[in-house]
Design a protein around this nucleic acid. Structure first.
Length: 1056
RNA sequence: GGGCGUGUAGCUCAGGCGGUUAGAGCGCAUCCCUGAUAAGGAUGAGGCCGGAGGUUCAAGUCCUCCCACGCCCA
């Protein structure tokens, strides 16, 4: 463009080519320099607050592409709400504690378990954990910044900070004071060799196939109707748990039978579930009685082994009811040993059964147990089985192959083992949780009653404590002389008071906190902290207050920002953060912490599987953004498919986003600036005329913008980025491929109506897109939108959300344009089927379409011009004798009105003469005979398709018809020739690198039709191609271009 | 084993309240248009809408069962 002198306006041309990732880095620098994010917050400080909580990512391991998903949603709505005029503070947070961090550090240090950690030193170990967290936080911060997620990381909360821990302590004290924090036993997977419990995650890694004995044991009934006359038949694959058998569970609603196996007339009959009768006792068993499980409750039996002492003061060894009992395998009677099974434990607790455990923490039976004392637990199986055989209590023994959890480190089979543990009795507040859930808006809705509702309905107490190191220490101090005396500490200040020394600067982590002890006047003994730390999920569930250090600090700020209007995470958080956030809020404040929650599906690799190192299908997030741009990745996450479905991400999909959405948008903006600059357009000096005076096409673009603005706003209010994105993408396409294409000439001419309209539309569109694609819209705002606005803010993210321009909205016009575009499609289709090039002008076309007669002349002209046809005539005007009519019913309309009669009406319509019926139909008097009565047809009941009889090329669809007259006159042929020459010259201009405004000289040679055409239309050609002079029948320099009909063309740039 | 979700063209995905020729984009083939475009348009090949029953005048859509995959829980 250099060297072209043009009138100067405020716009500078944007290049049509753009490197989006490079642009994004420039924009990032600009944001940093101009402190744009901070200004969006400062400027809104006095506005109504819209509260968003950032769920802290666990800072162990590097961030993956799936982290972009949740972070895109966490960004788009705050941006939207900010533009709408809310104050949306956004504070980042990091989840720092927990077993994953410990395991990562253990692996770094090559540790094999807790003894290694203890030997290394807890202080040193925790220091390594802290260091690991800080390292990983850096990687997350980098990702956050690069993707344009605006969240304040300078004030990020960290769950390992002392102020955070103090808030968590405070909340636990509230829970304790309500009597909901209690110590109890917990049955958990446990490795007897390593002496440590395993997390679920660890257990999942260690399943191995194992062959266990499968034994059916007789337990004689000792009370009730069948006392001494029947045996319970109990199945188990863990004989080693039988010495501690405490009860037998049956399902309350299953039918149980007392039956005698075929051919066994002497032995006592057996009790089994009816559905398992054949499986357990074989064919032909004789059924003596039949009753439901409920009726067996509290029937006592004789236990299989007398090796272990049970307390005398509680009843044991009777039948209990349990819903979890199935009739899939075994006998439908399940042996209960509360020390070794989570279900057993829960059932036992409901019945007040004791937890009897003859096995020590190393996995061996204690020495005082007869028969198997000192045996490793599984090694005791054969001895126990043989003993039962000898005593005749074993009904049957088989081998059973199944997958069983093993320690992933040492491959020892795990025990489910009761360990003392601290619980929050969330089951006590189940009703409150359900009520809070009822008030919560879930997106998608089905989570509320489905996955999450089920989880709440089956709520079990929260096992809060962990026998680990790197976590928030459980703030319970217990008197070593009287363990029933406990003090729960709510802050370091309280602890200082209790100990009488200033502990305000103490690191509240282990091991330092473990050394803090105190005494209470008048009491014996010393208060020492219990050794456990707490579940890291409780940390994150406390973030609404703990991020402020509340209530010790910032109490007012916390209260003003509780609860949140909005949170968003992936679906795996249903039982994670979504639950803990609601549970902690309800426990402490009797109110859930959030009102709206968006629950996202997972991001999968291109092959539809989870991304994993093992499969080698990982897409690293940073390289992905540097290849396609963060805007493209964000757009995909927000608008590429349903947010709550699992979605596949890949390079193809992303480059499609770039081409279809981002570059189309960019090019429209670039096109605008090209002609705004070339023509020196200045809206202040030459504003667009009032809307009513602008061409229909301009008014259409503005009407579409109004309608899209309305739709996008509504969709985002409903947290529906997919619909919003679809509306935007369609509008971008319409704008580029219809409005701009149809308006090109007016832009070349610098028409202020066209330039003004496009500027207005780009303004609105850029604001609508800003929350989705903050980078490219920022650049367009600064270089395309702002220069044309008086007093424009310097960032689109400081701009206001567009309101719907009610005056511009024109749904009738939108509808008419839709008709125009459909007719154009049909015309093109007809052209193609006749192999008639659009470049060849035709004399006329016929059109049949509902609403055609009301179409404004300007829009008719659009169709004619687009199809390159001189004249368009309504088909009806040709005369019905030349037209075929076909007709069918609109099932939707008729079906809704007449129900099942619709089929008969359709048949009757088909049987009636179409031409006559259509004439009556248009006069409003049409009826068809159905079952002897005449059924009237009203407007909208029929789809009428009219086609000319012959001599035309026709395309029709959906009641619309376009027919082309292909007759070519010499005049039309010459007009076609001229179009051909113009196109050739334009092509040549482009390929030789001429600027759009460069003038040229043109030479041509040709004979006959070509000569005549170029002579006749010389001026038109010159005007089209910006030729200052045309040298007819004169060869230029060189080869020139081969034109149509034997002509030849030469061009050179005109010297000014 | 249970709960929830998903299954539509080779690929990625749309398909308010059920309405009779199931759509779009990518990719492929042929052609067209083009002085913003990495674009646009037309035609074609490519679909038992996971399978089987059922409800209905009418089912991709509603119901039941089954299959596959995913997530969560056992």
């Amino acid at each position: 463009m250099e060297g072209v002198s043009a009138p100067s306006g405020p716009f500078q041309a944007l290049p049509p080519q753009v490197d989006l990732p490079a642009l994004e880095h420039e924009v990032l620098e600009q944001w940093a320099t101009d402190k744009v994010f901070a200004r969006t917050l400062e400027g809104a400080a006095d506005r109504p607050q819209w509260v968003f909580y950032e769920g802290p990512p666990t800072a162990n391991g590097r961030p993956g592409t799936h982290h972009i998903e949740a972070r895109a949603f966490k960004d788009v709505f705050p941006r939207f709400k900010t533009m709408q005029g809310y104050h949306v503070p956004r504070r980042a947070g990091w989840d720092c504690h927990g077993l994953p961090v410990e395991i990562a550090v253990e692996q770094e240090l090559g540790f094999a378990g807790k003894p290694d950690i203890e030997a290394y030193g807890i202080a040193e170990f925790n220091a390594r954990c802290r260091e690991s967290v800080e390292r990983h936080v850096g990687a997350f911060a980098e990702l956050t910044d690069r993707m344009g997620y605006w969240v304040d990381m300078s004030t990020a909360y960290r769950t390992m900070d002392a102020s955070y821990i103090e808030s968590v302590w405070w909340s636990l004290k509230q829970v304790f004071d309500k009597g909901l924090l209690v110590e109890s036993h917990r049955v958990a997977p446990y490795c007897p060799r390593c002496g440590t419990g395993l997390s679920d995650h660890e257990v999942a890694q260690g399943y191995e196939t194992l062959v266990d004995p499968s034994v059916y044991v007789r337990m004689p009934v000792t009370t009730g109707e069948w006392a001494g006359q029947a045996d319970l038949l109990v199945w188990t694959t863990t004989p080693w748990t039988l010495p501690s058998n405490t009860a037998v569970a049956v399902h309350p609603d299953v039918t149980y039978v007392v039956a005698r196996p075929a051919g066994d007339d002497a032995g006592r009959p057996l009790v089994v579930a009816e559905p398992l009768l054949t499986a357990a006792l074989g064919e032909g068993a004789q059924v003596l009685a039949r009753t439901t499980g409920r009726d067996w409750e509290r029937t006592h039996y004789q236990r299989p082994f007398e090796l272990v002492d049970f307390p005398d003061d509680v009843e044991t060894h009777y039948v209990v009811l349990a819903e979890y009992v199935t009739t899939e395998d075994g006998t439908g009677l399940v042996h209960q040993s509360p020390a070794f099974g989570a279900d057993d434990f829960a059932v036992g607790r409901a019945y007040g059964l004791p937890v009897v455990n003859p096995i020590d923490p190393t996995g061996h039976f204690t020495a005082d147990v007869p028969l198997v004392g000192g045996h490793f637990f599984k090694a005791a199986d054969p001895t126990l089985v043989q003993d039962m055989v000898d005593r005749g209590v074993l009904y049957r023994e088989m081998r059973y192959e199944h997958s069983y959890p093993h320690c992933w480190r040492c491959h020892t089979p795990l025990m489910y083992y009761a360990q003392p543990s601290w619980y929050i009795r969330t089951s006590e507040i189940k009703g409150q949780l359900l009520a809070q859930n009822e008030r919560t808006h879930w997106y998608p809705e089905n989570i509320k009653e489905g996955r999450f509702g089920d989880w709440l309905n089956n709520n079990v107490d929260w096992a809060l404590s962990r026998d680990r190191y790197w976590g928030t220490p459980l703030p319970i101090w217990r008197n070593d002389a009287d363990p029933s005396r406990m003090v729960v500490v709510g802050s370091l200040a309280e602890l200082s008071e209790l100990t009488g020394r200033d502990l305000s600067d103490l690191d509240p982590h282990r091991p330092f906190i473990d050394d803090v002890t105190f005494t209470v006047d008048g009491e014996e003994g010393t208060y020492r902290r219990v050794r456990q730390v707490i579940d890291a999920w409780y940390d994150s569930g406390s973030m609404p207050f703990a991020q402020w250090g509340a209530p010790h600090r910032n109490k007012a700020e916390f209260e003003a920002a509780y609860p949140a209007q909005f949170i968003a995470e992936a679906i795996d958080q249903t039982r994670g953060w979504f639950y803990t956030l609601m549970a902690v809020g309800t426990l402490v404040f009797e109110q859930s912490s959030y009102e709206n929650v968006l629950c996202l599906g997972h991001i999968l690799a291109e092959d539809g599987r989870k991304m994993s190192k093992h499969l080698g299908n990982i897409l690293e997030p940073m390289p992905l953004m540097d290849r396609h741009g963060a805007d493209a990745v964000r757009w995909f996450m927000l608008a590429g498919g349903s947010p709550w479905s699992a979605r596949r991400v890949g390079h193809e999909t992303l480059s499609e986003v770039v081409r279809k959405v981002l570059l189309t948008y960019w090019n429209t903006a670039s096109f605008f600036t090209l002609y705004a600059e070339t023509n020196g357009w200045d809206p202040a000096a030459t504003p667009a005329p009032p809307r009513a005076e602008r061409p229909l096409l301009d008014r259409w673009a503005l009407a579409e913008l109004a309608s899209v603005t309305d739709g996008v706003t509504r969709a985002l209010e409903d947290f529906d980025t997919q619909t919003a994105g679809r509306l935007i993408a369609e509008f971008v396409d319409d704008l580029s491929n219809w409005y701009v294409r149809r308006s090109r000439r007016r832009f070349w001419d610098g028409d202020p109506a066209a330039l003004g309209t496009l500027h207005e539309v780009l303004d609105g569109l850029t604001r609508l897109m800003a929350p989705f694609t903050p980078f490219v819209t920022e650049r367009v705002w600064r270089t395309v939108v702002a220069p044309g606005l008086p007093d424009a803010v310097d960032s689109v993210h400081l701009a206001t959300w567009p309101t719907v321009d009610a005056e511009a909205r024109d749904d009738a016009l939108v509808e008419q344009m839709t008709l125009v575009r459909r007719l154009v499609e049909l015309g093109r289709s007809a052209r193609t089927s006749a192999k008639s090039r659009t470049r060849q002008p035709l004399a006329r076309a016929l059109v049949a379409a509902p609403g055609w007669s009301q179409l404004p002349r300007d829009l008719v002209a659009e169709v004619a011009d687009e199809l390159n046809v001189a004249e368009l005539t309504e088909l009806a005007a040709v005369g019905s004798s030349l037209v075929d009519v076909s007709v069918k019913v609109d099932f939707r309309a008729v079906g809704r009105r007449l129900g099942k009669q619709v089929q008969a009406v359709a048949a009757a319509v088909a049987a009636t003469d179409a031409a006559g019926l259509v004439a009556d139909y248009r006069a409003g008097t049409a009826t068809v005979p159905v079952d002897g009565t005449d059924v009237p047809l009203v407007e909208g009941d029929l789809i009428v398709t009219e086609t000319p009889r012959e001599g035309w090329t026709v395309a029709s669809a959906g009641g619309l018809t376009v027919a082309l007259d292909l007759t070519l006159t010499p005049e039309l042929e010459r007009a076609g020739l001229v179009r051909e020459v113009v196109r050739l010259v334009q092509e040549a201009r482009k390929t030789t690198g001429l600027a759009v405004s460069d003038r040229i000289e043109l030479w041509w040679t040709g004979e006959d039709a070509a000569a005549r055409a170029l002579t006749e239309h010389g001026e038109q050609v010159a005007a089209e191609v910006l030729a200052t002079s045309v040298h007819a029948q004169t060869a230029g320099d060189g080869e020139g271009l081969e034109g149509p009909a034997g002509s030849r063309i030469w061009i050179t740039r005109a010297t000014a």
